[in-house]
């Protein structure tokens, strides 16, 4: 057999196997996952809104109250990661607990906790953004691009 036809046979076998895998692989319960994500994600947002409303009712101006709410939510995300609850929540809620700002806190604190045993410099310092890093990098890139667009259309 020539190497080209061998290659073709291999590709065909891999494709056949791939189809078999797709047939047998259990499907994630999408509807259930969506429901959980909606409820938990929504609940986190409701908590955030309650905190914001409370702060405004205390006479804090809207901008400061917004910042304070974010700080409090990040703290709670970090706290619940620290006491080992957030990963259990994430298993159930999926995107519902990843997307809100508390999920971002979870990604950073989980990395910090994980790598603490490798020391503060090469462990925590070097790897704290191992999960959240891409969000930051592309967040910065996007902000620069939007800044440039704004500059161009001024």
């Amino acid at each position: 057999m020539s190497s080209e036809s061998e290659e073709k046979l291999k590709t065909a076998q891999q494709e056949e196997y791939h189809n078999l895998v797709n047939r047998i692989k259990p499907k994630p319960p999408v509807l259930k996952n969506c429901l959980w994500a909606f409820v938990v994600g929504g609940l986190i947002c409701v908590i955030g809104q309650l905190i914001l409303n409370y702060l405004i009712s205390m006479g804090i101006n809207k901008v400061d109250a917004g910042s304070l709410t974010a700080i409090i939510m990040i703290f709670m995300g970090a706290l619940f990661t620290g006491i080992g609850v957030y990963d259990d929540l994430g298993q159930k809620a999926g995107a519902g607990s990843i997307v809100p700002i508390t999920g971002f806190a979870n990604a950073i604190v989980a990395s910090a906790m994980e790598f603490k045993r490798e020391g503060y410099i090469f462990g925590v310092g070097a790897r704290i953004f191992s999960i959240a890093g891409p969000t930051l990098v592309f967040g910065f890139v996007a902000s620069v691009l939007i800044g440039l667009i704004k500059l161009a259309f001024r």
Partner: peptide
């Protein structure tokens, strides 16, 4: 977990497979 996947306290959802 920490070598092959995510930090252990990271809240990720596992798939059935």
């Amino acid at each position: 977990e920490r070598q092959f996947r995510f930090p252990t306290e990271q809240g990720v959802q596992k798939v059935p497979s």
